[in-house]
Design a protein around this nucleic acid. Sequence first.
RNA 1: GGGCGAUUAGCUCAGUUGGUAGAGCAACUCAUUUACACUGAGAAGGUCAGGGGUUCGAGUCCCUUAUCGCCCACCA
Length: 809
Amino acid sequence: MNEDTNPASNTGANQEGNKNTEPKKDFAAPNIPAQLLKPYDPTEVEPRVQKQERESGFYNPDVCIKEGITKPDAPIYSIILPPPNVTGTLHMGHALGFTTQDIIIRYKRMKGFRTLWIPGTDHAAIATQSMVEKNIQKAEGKSRHDLGREELLKRVGEFAQQSRDTIVSQLQTLGASIDWSREAFTLDEERNFAVRTVFKKMYDDGLIYKKNRVINWDPKGQTTISDDELVYEDRKAKFYTFKYSKDFPIAISTTRPETKLGDVAVAVNPEDPRYKEFIGKEYSMDFCGAPIKIKIVGDHEALMDFGTGAVGITPAHSMTDYQIAQRHNLPMIQVIDEKARMMIGSPDIVGKKVAEAREVVVEWLKANDLLIKEEEIDQRISTAERTGGIIEPLPKLQWFVAVNKPFKLAHSDIKGIEAGTEVTLKEIMQKAVLGGQVEITPEHFLKTYFNWIDNLNDWCISRQIWYGHRIPVWYKGEEVYCGVEAPAGASTDADADAEAGADQWVQDEDTLDTWFSSGLWSFSTMGWPKQANDPTSDFSIYHPTDLLVTAHDILFFWVARMILMTGYVLGTVPFDKVLLTGMVRDIKGRKFSKTLNNGIDPKDIAQKFGMDAGRMSLIFGTAPGTDSKIDENKIKGYKHFANKIWNVTRFILTATENFHDTVHNGIGEDNTKISFTKDDLALIEKRNEIFRSISTNIDNLKIHIASEDLYNYIWKEFADIILEDSKNIFAEAIDAGDLAENTVGGEGGASEESIAKKNSRAKFLLETLAMIVKTLHPFMPHVTQEIWSLLPAKLKTRELIMTEQWPLI
RNA sequence: GGGCGAUUAGCUCAGUUGGUAGAGCAACUCAUUUACACUGAGAAGGUCAGGGGUUCGAGUCCCUUAUCGCCCACCA
């Protein structure tokens, strides 16, 4: 398979004679590939190399084994790609993570590992649906209800497909050596089956339950969201102090007077001398047209030194109040509906939006002389991460995952948890990491991780949207059925369900939080559950995976959920190591966001500087977990670097032109056997030391240091010192050659010595060049492949450098 | 309120177990059409935020202060 890839090498006759007389002018030497004589052009090379690599099939480990590149019993190395959301396109932040993964995957592949990298995309339920809904509303003025469930899903599906196509092409532009034959989608049929299977298991174990309680309602997205999907915004707000009525003994304060129509109690601190005497008393009155009944309760939650020391309790519209109400068995009165409009009160309040109702209530308080104080305070309000809607806490019947409920874990490979013992999901998340089974880099995120788990509450998993995994639960009158498949007689038509009669099974309307399916990603992409017991399945071979590379902003959303799900379902961990990357920011230090429209498309970088340069600039000098800024000057530097290696190659091939095809056999220019000089042996030793440490650093996930060492060796050591020095050696050999020719029977000794030096150095340069190109390949796959294709055939064992063996192993 | 991180050259940032402070970019001097101007050589530039401690020795470990950033939290 070792064809001569040097297109210029068989162009026939050359003019050897010219070489020594005018060596410097003669770059167009016939032995040197024509491409090499021009500056390196990434825009031409990169797409070609990507296509060549992809079509080779070697991204797929099965092909590597079949073609003898990887041994069948080779050690395993697997990574799953964090699936990008199908809401849009990739930016340089994604590129950092993906480049990191690609570097490690290429490195491991060259080291002989059976290497798998699985791609896919995430349906990102709320984000995607709300984006499509917005587009439809804008273009056609229709809501999702105008379209119906089926039509909307069709539209969202189309959008997702387009997004997916863009993402795939972007990943290919990055040069990601990912196995496309295994591509998955969090919402495809196989993943849906995995989701249903896990849901059913959790339901049967009593870990999934349905309950009516106060949840985070997003009036804009018309759905619940989990605690983690809240984003806080600082705002100025009016803080009102007032009494419910003239006769009421205690004043309370609030920023939301309109919710007070739903108050059922006032909590005071039981130690508070001002209010002690009122505890237990009840008062009834009219408040803005709503009859309210207020009980005074003692609760330590009420702080004596805040506000008036008394809290109005609105169980239906505040998480805190809901919890206090639970403690005191208080009723819950909902006064705000799902559209954030008032449900009760006087006629000028009912139907009004909360902000308007607030004004009306304040006016009413003033008119009745009940308002005591009005001041401005700083307030944090909750908004929905995906839609930006202001969260309205509402009581709703929702599905939850119980994180503190003990259950029996049948099988366990998790250190500290014995099979068959009772554990909670929370404990699984803790112990998988505590025992070091999952290693997190940088280490300080461990504290963040445990801190989050300590404060974790039950996970609300139901969403009132249509795009997503529909909850596999069916109702018929009072009956409830949960199953992987629909019960017999259940309607399969989504829109028809709504009108189905009481004698028919009707599926739950809600869909699951997108992170429920993402949590299964490490094994749902590998054929679980259908091929779980097949020893030849990906699941049996590649799970648990070796490494997860992701940005630190989804540590809780995703990393923790994967640990939870994998621990629960399989009794093991999803990955051995987690490498958290920092966020890539724009030049002003801002996060990339759709609203700012400041995302940088990797394709633009590829156009401008070459993707290799883009990749290096993301990696170089960027410590794990540390945020970085994208800077075009930096990228430009690595474009220069690519060109540098290009020219290094040209120089070495030109300088050794006469015998670079024989050096591999140890045959020098004068047909003598080459042996290394002392100087060159020293260079080899130093070189090998540096290259070994580069390997070690990649092994330890310190690729930013590895890339720096490599860069410095190539440019500062190899090019600036060794190549410059070599010029003298080669010049001496030429002079000596001339001298020997001109002096018949003269002293050949000097000549032989300089020729021997040249031979030694030439061998060193060619071998080192091959080594440099191989070692640089994971970082800059395109330029290295192009150089590889231009190197003398005898220096290589294979056409594609990605399948060559890593140096010095 | 709790937790975490950052503070190193003009700018952007590296710095593994403590052992003489590093890179890129910018700026300065010089060289040169060279394998490469997508170049080379040289010089300059730092009380490693401040203070204290441990140590023979601290950018690195401990304490503390300040500033900035992030995450979490039920102060209505």
